[in-house]
Design a binder for these strands. Sequence first.
DNA 1: CGATTCTTTGAAAACAGTCAATCTGTGTGG
DNA 2: CCACACAGATTGACTGTTTTCAAAGAATCG
Lengths: 196, 196
Amino acid sequence: MDSAIFEIFKQYTKRYAELTESDFEKIEPVGIYRKLRKGQYMLQEGETWKYHAFIASGCLRTFSVDEKGNEHIVGFAISNWWAGDLESLKSNKPSKFNIDAVNDSEVILFPDRAYNKLVTELPSFHKMVITIHDRSFMASQRRILSYISHSAEEKYLAFLEMYPGFADIIPKNMIASFLGITRETLSRIRQVRDNQ
Amino acid sequence: MDSAIFEIFKQYTKRYAELTESDFEKIEPVGIYRKLRKGQYMLQEGETWKYHAFIASGCLRTFSVDEKGNEHIVGFAISNWWAGDLESLKSNKPSKFNIDAVNDSEVILFPDRAYNKLVTELPSFHKMVITIHDRSFMASQRRILSYISHSAEEKYLAFLEMYPGFADIIPKNMIASFLGITRETLSRIRQVRDNQ
DNA sequence: CGATTCTTTGAAAACAGTCAATCTGTGTGG
DNA sequence: CCACACAGATTGACTGTTTTCAAAGAATCG
């Protein structure tokens, strides 16, 4: 049910801004409500991304594939997060990334044009968007610091702390890819830790 | 001369927005004009950051110091870039980072409150700020991808490509710290490349 | 010039990646 | 219900990369 999905979004907004019922009446019809089955793609490399995607349930991953065919996961998005390729959106060029569903998921796609209209017309929505932006930038800064200063094991421990709940729903090989280490190395790190 | 520094800022804005002379008249008096000598600190760990700093000339670095006393450089900012600690600014909490001058530098500090006032009052300034935000987020995403998918040598080559000009003005040991490798490893990478 | 900082080099040790085999749990079709 | 296939996770042996530690060589600055 779309309205159930939108309800999750409404709850989410309360963290960042006080939107009125009249605001929500303008926002709701703009959204495109999608269910994604595990493995299904939301964006494929080469397509141009046009949305702002809110994840209501499940989990998506954003990854690129290198020349050798290896996948590199640049980000996960679980419920109450956003996903998309800002670079493709802003430049209007084909994306270098893929986004697919790690688990069965429900998302709301806000087309960029309508989304920007909401930003202009609804000050609370605008405020929320800026806050979310700031927070994702800070999150990526923390992640960079983790990568340049930590060993494989420390990165994994930092991951468990920074994204509690992720480790339970995301396969280990994807976590390894996110951390920039091999699944074998992650497996060995976990083995040592569990024996303690 | 402060006006010479502001002139650099004026030129810079043209990339992102069309600000009028009347806009600039509002912006100029808000800025605090500072010269930093090599090694001088703009922000020290523990202080709360309150500004948006535009780099007119020179180069700054943002770094944290871990328990072992090792410095980890999370970012450089050369002329026509911005520096600061968004996390401290937004949370109003003491910063975990230091920012100091790699070379003699000139910066304009825009106090957060006055900066936000400019954002509200000048639509062009607002537009520019959003664009800059988006661009720094995209830059950090690219950097993350580089870290999870590249070897030490590939990271260095990607660095040379992504930040042309940086390698000439920044000491090698700092580049190594930025890349998350040791100065010895960077030295060996460069040795091999120069012999080709 | 002397002091400091930055860079390079060498050898050994630690760390992480590769390749190949095996194990585990899940789900599907006969 | 069983057998099988498949994806995910683990293990072992080996290889390659990066760090560490120690020393020495440039470069820069007062």
